[in-house]
């Protein structure tokens, strides 16, 4: 029976042009809405599967503004049974929208994990995304593992839990420079997940209804200590379009000839 915690982050969506807030300190998400990293969607799916396979439970956690309840509900709709919301103060438009840096987020998650453990409801496995879709710090999971003195593997393509009690282990498969790598971690452990092999399920209608009633523990987020050290966000210079149209499918032959000319000029095809 594995008790799994999955940590997710509300991030700005970004279908079109990215806009910054007036003070250049955050991404203006008013028009693009919010989402999760695909890595975290896979982590949620892994948590739900492991909880199901072992007869345990999956809990989702986020540290973020009030609006992050929307992302918690998404996880609750696909089979996570309860949620923890560490609420931050936020203007409502930013990326993570507040001043918590990766060390602060890890510390806040560690506090929750310790409290649950003291109550006899410790998490056997904590799953996170490999990197957050907005800040991409690549470190919350590793910092959390050190705070809890647990082993950690990052970038898992799949995670499974075998055995129970003190003999329980997590088998993790990931991609290394020389091929597929396998790890086996004694529980409790921390694993960060990458998109690739896990297919997240879609929420069902009963799932969505259940999510509305699922328990959400709301806690005020601890104040940041280390912070983000952000000075400003800047957009890379927009280069005016200099595209040269080589042709259209009205005259496919001419267009194809022009493409092949370019390939010759670049030197990727030689006569």
């Amino acid at each position: 029976m594995a008790n799994v915690l999955v940590c997710i982050k509300r991030v700005p969506g970004s279908s079109g042009q990215v806009l910054l807030t007036g003070d250049s300190m955050s991404i203006d998400a008013r028009h693009v809405g919010h989402t999760l990293s695909p890595h975290e969607e896979c982590a949620i799916e892994a948590a739900v599967q492991i909880a199901g396979d072992t007869g345990g439970a999956a809990t989702v956690l986020t540290l973020g503004p009030e609006g992050a309840l929307e992302q918690l509900r998404e996880a609750l709709a696909v089979g996570v049974s309860s949620a923890v919301h560490l609420v931050t103060a936020d203007g409502g438009s930013g990326d993570s929208g507040d001043a918590h840096g990766p060390a602060d987020v890890a510390a806040a998650i560690a506090d929750v994990a310790r409290r649950r453990e003291a109550a006899g409801e410790g998490f056997d496995l904590i799953l996170l995304g490999n990197d957050a879709a907005d800040t991409g710090d690549f470190q919350v999971g590793v910092r959390l593992a050190y705070l809890l003195a647990r082993p950690v593997v990052t970038g898992a393509r799949t995670v499974a839990v075998d055995g129970s009690g003190p003999a329980a282990v997590a088998t993790v498969i990931g991609d290394g420079p020389a091929g597929t790598e396998e790890f086996q971690l004694p529980l409790p452990a921390v694993v960060t997940v990458k998109e690739g092999e896990i297919t997240p399920r879609y929420p069902s209608i009963p799932g969505r209804l259940k999510a509305k009633k699922a328990p959400v523990e709301v806690i005020e987020a601890p104040a940041p200590v280390q912070g983000t050290a952000r000075r400003a966000l800047v957009l890379p210079p927009e280069h005016p379009s200099t595209v040269q149209i080589l042709g259209t499918d009205k005259d496919t032959g001419a267009a194809a000839a022009a493409v092949v000319d370019v390939l010759h000029t670049i030197g990727v095809v030689t006569r």
Partner: peptide, 28 residues
């Protein structure tokens, strides 16, 4: 993808891609 590209062909890829392959064959 088009406006940021160096070059573009505006059209159906299922017509353009095979045409590029045949052009390569023809020149060979």
């Amino acid at each position: 993808m088009v406006t940021k590209a160096n070059y573009a062909v505006v059209g159906d890829l299922h017509q353009v891609v095979p045409a590029i392959s045949s052009e390569l064959d023809a020149r060979h």
